[in-house]
Amino acid sequence: MENWLMLTLVGKDRPGIVAKISHALFEMKGNLGEASMTRLGGNFTIMLMVCIPESKTVVQEKLQNICDELELFFHLDAIEAGLHQHIEPDVRISIHGADQAGIVASATDALNKAGLNILNLESDVGGSSESPVYIMHIEGIAGKGFDAVEQALQALSRKKDVVARMTPIDTMVG
């Protein structure tokens, strides 16, 4: 059985982090799977799957020095995982408006009740510091159909005074 670990790294962003970490994992004969890295508020963040023959404890010890040197917090979990398990989203949702507390809570609560299973969520704060703008994009599966999602977004739009739209994703396979 494959030994998959999920590695989470957070810290001050600087060039070369991914190269150093992936090199260290490669030296332990680790094989990287799916990963998601982004800068959040100036911080480096990554979550990555690695399939590795070493035990979690050994990997942890070896990564500790590198992460200390790079001033990164890290966290390692043994996970049940596998590749080739992608699920296709069938709807894309965009929400934007003046930044305010509670947009994500209201939106995700409404969408959950409307049967949406979120597969990807990305959000940003743009605009200026005087007038920040919140922008969120979600891709998911509309388990109770598009109408339920559309109605949830219309209600959200009125309640929070945001623009909330959905577009069905019709993947073209050729």
Partner: peptide, 13 residues
């Protein structure tokens, strides 16, 4: 902009 998949590229869109 749209989402695409391909018979020649399984499990990825």
């Amino acid at each position: 902009l749209g989402r695409e998949g391909c018979l020649s590229v399984p499990d990825y869109t």
